[in-house]
Design a protein around this nucleic acid. Structure first.
Length: 431
DNA sequence: TGGTATGATTACGC
DNA sequence: GCGTAATCATACCA
């Protein structure tokens, strides 16, 4: 009751805008006291919060409230003009758009929110990584996923905070609208202001995320550029293929895949990353050039692999002969119908014929009997490998033509050889 | 630490 | 797009 009287007194005859307002004014107070009281009331209005609504219930129900409301309307009318022009909608921020596009391209943002494997895969492809399963690749994907997850977690937090704050402010304004004139449009404007503030924060988050992705990307590319030697087994597999296809060391895409797989199987037993098809291509590219440049240097290596292959071939033939004697009327000389299985033996007969000195560059024995003979001969040569190797090279650069290139000749052995098993890697005869 | 080996990259031609 | 040749950058080894 005392408060009501006090409020009446404070509003008596005073215009907040400096204009007289027709109010029922008691005449028992001083000007100084009135001004202070008005200030108190306004302060009360402006500091209304959800928590203090009950306390201010008295204020809302105050009989002088309509008068106060009209005064505030007048103030608003005068100040509103300066506000109206400031609520234009901003055009989309180009910087924000760039960041959005970048995050989308990197697979960080996008339709999928969490664990966006597809998006990350797209991003890794954009980095220039093939469809291999190298450790670096999976590392990159894992780290990108991590960044993606953190980004979305933070983004959700911001969105949640933004929504909570917006709701709070809207409630507050709605509540205040009982006491002072606040239009829905003004509330909307306030919401926009809040959203703008939060989008600034979001932009910072996006910037940080972009930076993180860029750093990760550059590190990943650096790591890729770093050279790591292939394992001994992988090199052996590649060399075996190379020297057994010396007349035409151009593996087909399938052959490369097969070789990459073989190396991967070998590597899975040890440490190291898998070998990709492009790495196989690189390896063959380098090998061809280096072999051609310095055949003498590779002679020993060639001999070694020739002997190796010869032994393997011998074992295969022996097994096949044994097989034919016990199981079938068919003999190894019956052609490709035999059940031989020898890995990487495409040019073995070329190297075999090289052994007995009867090699003809573009001619490959194509009868099973001749092949068997060659193999038998090779066995003998192989046994004497350590003795007469250096003076009597097993290999000759038979695949190379006069121009320094490999002959166009196909590798018939890859087609007709009975020792070309199902597990062997096929050479690309189109080269 | 220097020489060599080797995987990767680049420019070029076809 | 593939192969060649040159080159780079790094690993490996005596």
């Amino acid at each position: 009751m005392e408060e009501q009287i006090h409020l009446m007194q404070t509003l008596g005859g005073v215009t907040l805008t400096g204009h007289p307002v027709a109010l029922p004014v008691p005449h028992d107070g001083t000007d100084a006291r009135n001004k202070q009281d008005i200030g108190d009331i306004l302060h009360q209005i402006m500091t209304i919060t959800d928590q203090s609504l009950d306390e201010k219930h008295g204020l809302n129900c105050h009989r002088m409230k309509p008068a106060l409301f009209s005064v505030l309307c007048e103030i608003k009318e005068k100040t509103g003009l300066s506000i109206r022009g400031s609520q234009d909608e901003d055009p989309p921020d180009p910087q924000l758009m760039r960041l959005d596009n970048m995050l989308l391209a990197e697979g960080v943002s996008g339709p999928e929110k969490r664990g966006g494997a597809a998006a990350v895969a797209t991003a890794t492809a954009a980095v220039g990584v093939g469809a291999d399963n190298s450790i670096e690749h999976s590392d990159y994907r894992a780290k990108l996923s991590q960044i993606r997850q953190i980004y979305h977690t933070e983004l959700e937090k911001y969105e949640q905070a933004c929504n909570e704050f917006t709701t709070h402010v809207m409630n507050l304004l709605r509540e205040q609208s009982r006491t002072r004139p606040i239009s829905p449009k003004e509330i909307e404007r306030m919401v926009n202001i809040i959203h703008r503030k939060f989008s600034t924060i979001q932009m910072q988050l996006k910037q940080s995320t972009c930076e993180a992705v860029m750093i990760l990307r550059s590190r990943f590319l650096d790591a890729r550029r770093k050279r790591r030697n292939f394992s001994k087994q992988a090199t052996e597999i590649l060399n075996e293929y190379f020297y057994s296809h010396l007349s035409n060391p151009y593996p087909s895409e399938e052959a490369k895949e097969e070789l990459a797989k073989k190396c991967a199987i070998t590597l899975s037993q040890g440490k190291g990353s898998t070998i990709t098809v492009s790495q196989v291509s690189n390896w063959f590219g380098n090998k061809r050039i280096r072999y051609k440049k310095n055949i003498g240097k590779f002679q020993e290596e060639a001999n070694l692999y020739a002997a190796k292959t010869a032994v393997t071939a011998t074992q295969a033939v022996a097994a096949a002969v044994h097989n034919s004697q016990t199981n079938s009327p068919a003999t190894p000389s019956s052609g490709s119908s035999g059940s031989y299985s020898l890995p990487g033996s495409g040019d073995i007969f070329m190297s075999m014929s090289g052994l007995n000195g009867s090699y003809q560059p573009t001619q490959v024995p194509n009868t099973g009997q001749t092949q068997a003979d060659s193999i038998r001969h090779a066995i003998g040569q192989s046994l004497g490998y350590s003795d007469g190797l250096r003076g009597n090279p097993l290999y000759s650069p038979h695949g190379l033509n006069g121009n320094g290139g490999w002959h166009d000749a196909v590798t018939p052995s890859s087609v007709t050889s009975p020792i070309e098993g199902a597990n062997s890697v096929h050479s690309d005869t189109s080269n």
